[in-house]
Structures are given as C-alpha cells and as structure tokens.
Design a protein around this nucleic acid. Sequence first.
DNA 1: CAGTGTGAATAGGTTCACAGCG
DNA 2: CGCTGTGAACCTATTCACACTG
Lengths: 231, 231
Amino acid sequence: MVKKYGLEDVSKATVSRMATYLRCLTYLEQQGASTLSSRELASLTGVSAEQVRQDLSVFGRFGKRGTGYDVAHLKTEVEAIFGRGVERWKCCIVGVGSLGTALMSSRMVQKWGFRYVAAFDRDPRKIGTHVERIPVYSIDELKTIVRREHIAIGVIAVPASSARNVARILCEAGIRGILNFAPQSIKVPEKVPMLSVDLSQEFLKLSFYIQSAEQRAREEQIQIDAASHNE
Amino acid sequence: MVKKYGLEDVSKATVSRMATYLRCLTYLEQQGASTLSSRELASLTGVSAEQVRQDLSVFGRFGKRGTGYDVAHLKTEVEAIFGRGVERWKCCIVGVGSLGTALMSSRMVQKWGFRYVAAFDRDPRKIGTHVERIPVYSIDELKTIVRREHIAIGVIAVPASSARNVARILCEAGIRGILNFAPQSIKVPEKVPMLSVDLSQEFLKLSFYIQSAEQRAREEQIQIDAASHNE
DNA sequence: CAGTGTGAATAGGTTCACAGCG
DNA sequence: CGCTGTGAACCTATTCACACTG
C-alpha cells in the first residue's frame, strides 16, 4: 500500500509512541486478542485515547467505527511504517565491552528485523574472536566492511573519549543511521539520523523526579496538617 | 543555598537537557575551562543559546552578564539540582543477565553518586555469587533487603514477562524510584517515579528516521532534477 | 450506538527581542 | 560592550468535542 503522508512532518513524540504501540500490539497478538479500541491501547501504554487516534491518523485510517482496530492488521500497518518488510536492517556494533556484548545478546532487537553482522573493537585480544556468533574486527577494517556488507546502522558502545572519532568513521563509511550509547554529544551530518541513549543520564533524571515527588508529598502533607489544624 | 523554584513544574524536556548540560560541564571542567557562555554550552549540546538560558533560569541566576557562567560553580549548582551532595543514591538491580551485568559494570553511574548495593535474580546458580563485587540474592529476599538497606532506586533488567511482577514487589518494598529496561509498559503508583528505556524501540525509531531522511533526500533530488531540466 | 477520525480549542514548549547589569 | 535573564510572540503538541460510520 502506498502511503500518502510525508514522513518528514511526524513529530518525535509520535514516532516514540508508535514504537510503544507496536510493542503492545505484538503482545496483544500473542495473547490472542483480535480487536481493540483506542481506549484499550491507551490504557495499556499510558497515553490518552485521543492521542492514540491522533497518532494513528497521521499514517492512515486503520480503524472501523463502532468496532475499533483489528490487532493483526494494525500491527502489520505499524510494522510497515517502521520499515519492516521493506528490508532487514543490517547493523554493526563498535565497542565490544559489557554494553556492546549485552546489546548483541538481545534477542529482542532481532525480532524487529535488525541483524548484527559485524562488531568492531580496538583491543587486539578481541579482534578475530566471535561474540554471540558475530565476528569481531579491527576498527581499521570498519569502512571496508560497512561498505562491502551494506551495513545500515552503526551502534556506538565505546567510551566517551572515542565516541566522536567512531561516529566520524561511521559517517565516512556511508552508514545510514547511528545509535549512540556513549555519554558524549556528537555532531553528525544532518543527513545521517542519530539517536543517543545515555544510561547515566537516566539515573540523574530519575533522582530529580524522586526529589520532586517527595517534595510534592511533603507539601501535600503540610496542607493536610494545616487543614486538620483548622477544624 | 535554598531553592525558590518548585521542582514539580519543571518540564521533562528541561530535566533531560539539564542532565546533558551537567555531562558537558564535567567534561569542560576536566578540560580546564573556567567560564563559558550560553552560546558555547548550546553548541556543545545541540540546543539553542536561548534554550540554555531559559532552562538554567528555572533554577536560579547562575551567570554573570557580559561574562557568562563559571564552569565549576555552574557544575556544582546543577549537581545540587540533581541531588548530588544531598545523598549517595543506593541502587539495586533485578535481573543479572547480560544487560544487568553491563549496567553494574558501568563506572559512569557511580561517578554521579549512584551505588549498587544488591542484585537479585531467580536463577539458583546465580544466587549467592557476586557480580562486580555486588552480591546476588534471591528475588524472595528483595523486600527485606530493600527495606533494611534503604535502597532508593530499583533497576529492572528482567525479561518483559516478569517485569510487572518485579515492579510490584519493588513498590511494595517501598522503593523510591524505578528505572525500567524491560520492553514492557508498567503501571506504578503515581508517587513512585519511573523511567523506562526500551533499547529495541530505539532501533525502531532510528529505522523510521532513516527512511524519513532518505525520502526527503529523494524528494530534494527530484526538485534539483526538475530545476536543472527547466534551465 | 459505540468508537473512529478530525477540526477547533487549549496547553505547553521554544524562540525572539530587548532591557539591564557587570 | 557582551552576555544574561525574561516577558511576549510564536509555534508545536495535546485534549476536547462532535460529526460520521459500520
């Protein structure tokens, strides 16, 4: 089916939620659910029902009025939006440390059509070995192999100090997109999409929200105390 | 210094950027930088200078007009916003698989005052062992140990199928915040802050952006072709 | 008549423009 | 004079309200 929407004007938030919907749809299909309403999908994902309908309507009209959405059909449509069926994304990982190894072990990622075909490291003891059946090469071979194998996605799992250099090499090799797990801001040409995930930042953010929640709780307690005092 | 702002009305986006600023400030301090302007911090983090000033002004007036910000001082202030100095956050990890192990090995997290004091797993072969010097206990002991050790943060690194159960146990144990790495939507009481990171969703999102970028490139190419045709 | 799809209203976040200070 | 801090303008995202359909 040919899509009429322009991928370029889909908001980041919508893309993120679409991925969550897809995860839920997969789960629901496994559970044997056949149809679901926007309200159900909303309550499963923690967004509002209007938001679900608004998000889906960006890409098409997938629902039946009065009935809701067909789980299997909607899943196929959302998969197509994320490029499933179009191709199986070839990935490589740079940095075979504990995080890199953990990422390669994740069966999850494979399920969506992503496939690691190469790993790269600087450590001579690792070069030539295999991790999760994926061969580990020297970073010097990166450009050659990325080009030869037509690798689409490069995953950066090296220390912050080498992240920028790795990103540069990946871009020069003609990589189509980058996933950066190094705690380092990286600039890449605008035509190379990049997403960064900084695990330590998540801890920092969480500690902020904990303090925020506990401050709010204290303030509410003071209000309750004051109110009971006035009785 | 006593803060005048209400932590509750700080936007998610601002919190996220503040964590990025802190990462940059740490880097800059190591590099020996003494002052920086909002424009410099902006270009390092990929946001606008106005955004940087707007974000910082939520928490206080840290800059000197005409000069900029003092790196060391601003870093201290931002650290304080994230609760550094107030306490060292005790953490526990549930699920000693490859991801759980990778998270425990991360020195990064320790640098910000987070400290793993316990790990939990269901696998009898892992219980009683140590991973990165952190003892692995049975999940049955979770509640007791979290309460006894006053553990603040629980990290979920188990398969999706057990994530909800683990979250429930953590909440019952009185955990103050949760970081969820399982690909599963989880509901927790509103008073327990939770952040979720789904690594496979990041791959999906990236593949969407790659397609989007390549579609845009094709469209631009068509425009260029058409223009040169009209010459 | 239940539930989608969608224009309109509202809320929220970002950028602009400039006053004010070091 | 340069750069911060900030109200106002602008733009984006979410929610509301309801027409419409299977």
